[in-house]
């Protein structure tokens, strides 16, 4: 991918806040992220860092009344989708940007058959006669490798395993031939063996359809498996971003280095062990780098002044005062 080619979707200064009893707490702080056509980008970080909210903002599906975008823009084909009316946004969801969310068992409506939910996804953007609808649904189910799709059409989600539900959710997401699929922790709720299958499926679908993929995950294993580029998020900011190989080979930010070191020690698929210390809440955040309190290499300047973004390699950027290239 060259820099000259325009990005498929580009977030600039994207900020979101969560509504709490005491008022609004900013969660995502002026985030910049672009995804090229057919590219797979991963946002990785600990829970609570704002990665999910950032991703959901890009399809405008933040939980209503609980969180909202407070600033910035998200450009798709040069159009700021944050300014679209809800109706225009609906026309775009599923057709340009699709979403699969964390827990497949609760992502399907328990009261509707698999078939009805698939039909809904297909007919949201294409008026098809009943028979064609059925054909398309079966085709989608075969595409995501659902065995015996005819029988499944009439079944309810609770009859299906988690992995099977996730396949249905993926089938619904690709029904409208989206150019970007946002996958919010797509494998977190699944068994380790099923995780691998779902990731392979996503990889294959991506190659077949040429769609771009934005994967939100806390698992560097998933990043390594899937992504071209990775953005590491900490306390609402992307603190390091670059090609996956580059980040794995030479992480610059002490936080990235810490995460990677822990990942390599942990058995595959296990939940990430934690770096000592806690993420500061927005109110307790020091004026400088948000990671300074947990960073064993923090300098005085780290605590007083926020680090600017620096380019440290080809498409590799980092927000850290620390200059040495350390081996992780």
């Amino acid at each position: 991918m060259t820099l000259a080619e325009p990005a498929l979707i580009e977030a600039r200064g994207l900020s979101t806040a969560v509504r709490t009893a005491a008022g609004e707490t900013p969660i995502v702080l002026s985030l910049d992220l672009s995804i090229g056509r057919g590219e797979t980008v991963a946002i990785v970080g600990e829970s609570g860092c704002g990665k999910s909210l950032a991703a959901l903002s890009m399809i405008r599906l933040l939980p209503k009344g609980q969180a909202r975008v407070t600033g910035g823009e998200v450009r798709l084909d040069g159009r700021d989708i944050l300014r679209l009316r809800e109706r225009e946004m609906n026309a775009l969801r599923g057709r340009d940007i699709a979403l699969i969310s964390q827990d497949p068992m609760s992502a399907l409506n328990p009261l509707m058959t698999i078939g009805a939910q698939l039909y809904e996804a297909i007919s949201a953007h294409a008026a098809l006669p009943r028979e064609a609808l059925r054909e398309r649904a079966l085709e989608l189910m075969r595409l995501v490798r659902i065995p015996d799709p005819e029988t499944r059409l009439g079944e309810y989600p609770h009859r299906l395993s988690g992995g099977m539900c996730q396949r249905i959710v993926i089938a619904m997401a690709i029904a409208g031939h989206p150019r970007l699929l946002i996958a919010d922790e797509p494998t977190t709720a699944l068994d380790v063996t099923i995780q691998a299958q779902v990731l392979q499926l996503l990889q294959r679908l991506k190659e077949e359809t040429g769609m771009a993929l934005l994967i939100v995950t806390h698992d560097f294993g998933v990043v390594a498996e899937m992504a071209d580029r990775v953005a590491v998020m900490y306390a609402g900011r992307i603190i390091e971003e670059g090609p996956v190989r580059e980040i794995f080979r030479a992480p610059r930010h002490p936080y990235t280095q810490g995460l990677l070191a822990l990942t390599r020690r942990a058995p595959a698929g296990e939940r990430l062990p934690e770096i000592p210390g806690v993420v500061p809440s927005y109110a307790d955040r020091p004026p400088g780098c948000a990671f300074a309190g947990r960073c064993d290499r923090a300098l005085d300047i780290c605590r007083t002044t926020a680090p600017a973004r620096r380019i440290v390699g080809r498409r590799h950027e980092v927000e850290c005062w620390f200059d040495g290239e350390a081996s992780a």
Partner: peptide, 16 residues
């Protein structure tokens, strides 16, 4: 309204 399946339904591009 806060359930995951509602998010899924919205993501399909269904009308309000």
């Amino acid at each position: 309204a806060a359930a995951d399946y509602v998010k899924t339904a919205r993501a399909k591009g269904l009308s309000e």
